[in-house]
Amino acid sequence: MALSLACCIFIPAVAWFEISKLPVLIFAVISIIIVLYTTFHKKSREKFKVREIAGLKAVENAIGRATEMALPILYTPGWGGDIQRPTTIASLNILSHVAEKTAQYNCDLIFPTHDPVIMSVAQEVVRESYARAGFVDRFKEDDIRYVTSSQFGYAAAVEGLITRLKPASIFLLGTFEAESLILAETGNIAGSIQIAGTDSTIQLSFFIVACDYTLIGEELFAASGYLSGDKSILASIRAQDILKIIIIILIIAAVIWVSFDPAADWWVF
């Protein structure tokens, strides 16, 4: 492979940069600059407040309820994501906060997943949260478990856990697919308080019907910053808002433009 790479480097006929991707590069560079600015510019980080999100205010109650009832908490990141997916990372951030609380209240935290890598990372996240809370001896590695990679095998396994353990609270935070309603309805039948959040737009409608609180799309990303108060995460929420304003301006400009010139398509690339 090294030889073929070396040969290819000296092929001058093909340009290194694909010009058709210039608009993508421009938007990517603008986004990177905004994220870096909001993250590392001190003043920008200070003047910033996140609005209250009802689902997140309920997290404390959900953990408190489990402690009072002496029942476990079930937390699952869904079948649809893997560790590369930003939603999974956001979910693990929230897990870190939940685990710290369950460690303090000595409440069992069960985390079934379909992905061995997510399992390993979650074990580390929870272990560290228990250590941070000063109760590392309460950490049970086997409660963070891989069940199966198969979608409905996973759904059946988690459904079984909910039915048997009757958790006081259930967190369904991550990327979900068709298993979402099966899990949410089973949780509803078990009488658990359910806090859900996903980036799968189709599953949001199911969660809204069956769960007590639902984080819609990007609220899941905001949640980790909101709960932890981590300034770098809060800064990236601000970056998202700035980018959103840019997109809104572009959409309005395109709408006005196309109203006068219906054949225009300069924004399509």
Partner: peptide, 11 residues
């Protein structure tokens, strides 16, 4: 969601 993913990936 796209913007959330973008900023998380950058982080």
């Amino acid at each position: 969601i796209g913007l959330g993913s973008l900023t998380t990936s950058l982080r």
